[in-house]
Amino acid sequence: MEAIRVNNITKSYENINALSNVSFSINQTEIFGLIGPDGAGKTTLIRILTSLILPDEGNAYILNLDLKKDYKQIRKIIGYMPQRFSLYMDLSVEENLQFYAEIFGVSIKDNYYLIEPIYKQIEPYKERKAGKLSGGMKQKLALSCALIHRPKFLLLDEPTTGVDAISRIEFWEMLKNYQNEGITILVSTPYMDEALQCNRLAFIKEGKILTVASPSEILNNYPFNIYDIKNENTYQTIEYFKKIIPDAIINRFGQSLHCSTQLSFDEIIQATDINNILIEKIEPTIEDCFLWISQQQ
């Protein structure tokens, strides 16, 4: 069932198109990912859906509420975690949570079960000022505050930026719990590897939605064979393969390179005549797909 419907949203600041003609929909209790680099328009889109910014054109419907007309009701049912830590640094962990509970007219006890898995981890530090928390703990507190009124729609703007790898994994595990609680989640991230955690995702670049699909659809629709090529000198190897397979897409992936082409494994082995090279047929990663899709545009 459709929970959120976005219709042709356009927004520009001083002649720069932050978003152009963005449309998609999010299903009930889905984790919907907004994947794209910095400056792609993720924050603008999320702010529009929280009713913080009015779009220049287009509109959106959040659980059947009109974004422009019913923004007061919308603000009661959404939870929002901005990209920047926006809680009060001079208030303690508990005071922050208490404050957000009170302005939503609930008590911490009412929805404690919901935040318990995260809040329990920071509860030992509840007397500590929020400004003195570590990055991972700040993130947990911000999420607790965004959930304390049990929102129906949760919007998270780059919640894992600046957070270490382990906290990131724990974070995604928690999001799945909230999904099971019946909360619809929109989450943005600049990290391609997190895309796999979403039910569906939208690739966004330069204010345009490149594609909307599930991760497996995106991976399965990758139209090329893809080979992982390792060699001592990656730089020369790139130049070499650009020469022998001119229409291939070649991208550096760490110490190896990914070569996407229509050629079969045997054909590529045959075409290659340098030593000390390790060629392996692999499945595409989500980053391969993003690179390809953004080149298409």
Binding site: L52, I78, Y100, I103
Partner: peptide, 11 residues
């Protein structure tokens, strides 16, 4: 500090 952004999205 961005906390106004959070206040505005509350009721």
């Amino acid at each position: 500090y961005g906390s106004m952004e959070l206040l505005l999205v509350t009721p």
